[in-house]
Design a binder for these strands. Structure first.
Length: 514
RNA sequence: GCCAGAGUAGCUCAGUGGUAGAGCAGAGGACUCAUAAGCCUUUGGUCGCCGGUUCAAUCCCGGCCUCUGGCACCA
């Protein structure tokens, strides 16, 4: 069984989860579920990043220990996962002892190998903001913004990782592995970035300035800062699980591709003699242009509210259907409702309901066996085979939006098939041939529905389970074996009706006047 | 400024060197099993602008314009 280890970025706990966090979890989950279905042995990791200045400051502000602060916010992020039906196998926190142990090991190893050295760092420091400033922080006239208060140039000793000496190696690696980063244009960006010389990477902060972190194993006057702490979670989480590392894919936002994941991370691993991941998937951002958001008028859209209102599956469906992985997309309630109504409710949901209804009305709720296979049936079956093959390829290439589109086309074709056969007319006939056609049409629509839904299982798992249940069907363990046109449903007892995606009530205009 | 992505029907987007496509929205129709859903038909586009290559360009080349994002020791 092929091992497939996939991760999300870990979320920084200095704030509450929002749409971007949710999307990354859903996207990664869809990939993980799809690979499981394809027979891979999947390990799916997500988690939180809990160290650093901002967390330390936020905890101090509230007068509680940093760990307590982390416990509280982390719980919020963790609670998001079941809400979105995320099938992660593990959840790592950078304050976990298992993580700290590995971080210390790797740092120690690199230090002994001479990959880390101590040097003085000179820079402009803002006491008020407790941070070093950069040239780009300056006002156009060269002064420092008021926000920073008094700015002084200071010298501070820190530890540096010899990033620069691996630049050439990384360029060569990316040349040899041209599919390391998905989508491809992101890899080009990285290569462009690497045309400028790298500097060595400062990886420590003196404890006087930052207490909340993992102490350097070779100098406990310092803690390690950001990179060796956060990035190493992918490795530390599975360090004790044989056969899982290296990761197959890291799923991240485009904002943390360059330089952290595409430059620091491969070099860190290479320097530590740890195998590199197979690839990185960099997704885009959800934008909220257009939508007028105003808290004062109470019409602010929190996308996560849609989960409560319409359910996790509808939310997942929208995110995956609407976003071309790697590109940006707009998130509006109107667009959500368009997908929800036209695709989930009208096309799919209604097919479920009418299938159940007709089977109940014309066959006493028992799916008949198909008898008279004619052109109409053959065409549906042909289209199914084509749809299935295309959709699998699209999913393998992360083209989930297109895969869902094709699947919905098949659902539409099934609806059209029903119109063509018009079972409600056949039901009024006593001709033996019409009765045979009636039974055939009921069998065909039910089977088409079963199959269509199997193709959406990784995106809308709860819905798939519900539909199988009302069809009186329990799928086998081998997903791919479920994708052949069959007579599996013959004799199944179906439910009488099921409204899966109820149409939302129209806006209550009259209510506003009251 | 540099780099990348994008500019195609009202909206969201596919697309190929050879008479422009889909979904949604709009219009019309036949039907009634169904969540007033579904099905069929249909209106609609100088394919950002200007040149070039070519028998032929939306698709190739050059230039320009507009929008978005990134530009490091910052999560």
């Amino acid at each position: 069984m092929k091992s497939f280890y996939i991760t999300t970025a870990i979320d920084y706990v200095n704030g509450s989860p929002h749409l971007g966090h949710a999307y990354e979890k859903v996207l990664t989950d869809v990939i993980a579920r799809f690979r499981r279905q394809m027979g891979d042995k999947v390990h799916f990791l997500t988690g939180v990043d809990e160290h650093g200045q901002k967390v330390q400051a936020s905890a101090k502000k509230r007068g509680i220990p940093p760990q307590q602060f982390c416990d509280e916010v982390s719980a919020e992020f963790r609670a998001l996962l079941p809400k979105l039906n995320i099938s992660n196998d593990d959840f790592i926190r950078t304050t976990d002892e298992r993580h700290k142990k590995v971080v210390r090991q790797v740092l120690q190893q690199l230090f002994e190998k001479g990959e880390i050295y101590k040097a003085e760092y000179r820079g402009f420091y803002s006491t008020r903001q407790e941070q070093f400033l950069q040239e780009k922080d300056r006002n156009p006239d060269g002064t420092w913004p008021e926000l920073f208060g008094e700015v002084t140039e200071i010298v501070e000793a820190n530890y540096f990782f010899k990033l620069k000496q691996y630049q050439e190696w990384l360029v060569e690696f990316l040349t040899k592995n041209e599919n390391f980063i998905f989508p491809a244009f992101r890899q080009k960006q990285v290569v462009e970035f690497l045309k400028e010389p790298l500097n060595d990477l400062c990886i420590s902060r003196p404890r006087e300035r930052l207490e909340w972190g993992i102490p350097l194993p070779f100098d406990d006057g310092y803690v390690t800062y950001v990179w060796f702490d956060a990035l190493l979670n992918y490795y530390s989480a599975v360090a004790d699980l044989p056969g899982v590392w290296p990761a197959t894919y890291h799923v991240i936002g485009k904002d943390i591709l360059v330089p952290p994941h595409a430059v620091y991370w491969p070099i860190m691993l290479h320097a530590a003699n740890i195998p590199l991941p197979q690839g990185i998937i960099a997704h885009g951002w959800w934008l909220q242009r257009g939508a007028k958001m105003s808290k004062s008028t109470g019409n602010a859209l929190n996308p996560l509210d849609l989960v409560t209102e319409f359910g996790a599956d509808a939310f997942r469906y929208f995110l995956i259907r609407e976003m071309n992985v790697g590109q940006d997309s707009d998130f509006t309630r109107d667009q959500f409702l368009v997908r929800y109504n036209s695709e989930l409710a009208n096309n799919l949901g209604n097919l479920v309901n009418r299938t159940l209804n007709m089977t109940t009305r014309f066959a006493a709720g028992i799916v008949p066996a198909a008898e008279a296979i004619e052109d109409a049936e053959r065409e549906v079956q042909t289209q199914w085979a084509k749809t299935r093959d295309e959709v699998i390829v699209l999913n393998e290439g992360f083209q989930f939006h297109a895969a869902l589109e094709r699947t919905m086309q098949f659902v539409t074709a099934t609806n059209a098939y029903i119109e063509r056969r018009a079972p409600w007319k056949l039901g009024k006939s006593t001709e033996a041939n019409d009765q045979a056609l009636l039974r055939t049409s009921l069998a065909t629509m039910a089977e088409a529905l079963r199959l269509a839904v199997a193709l959406m299982q990784h995106v809308i798992p709860s819905t798939t389970t519900k539909i199988n249940a009302v069809l009186g069907y329990t799928p086998g363990a081998d997903w791919r074996a479920e994708l052949d046109w069959s007579a599996k449903l013959s004799g199944a007892k179906v439910a009488e009706a099921l409204v899966l995606f109820p149409r939302p009530a129209p806006p209550e205009k009259a209510l506003a006047k009251v």
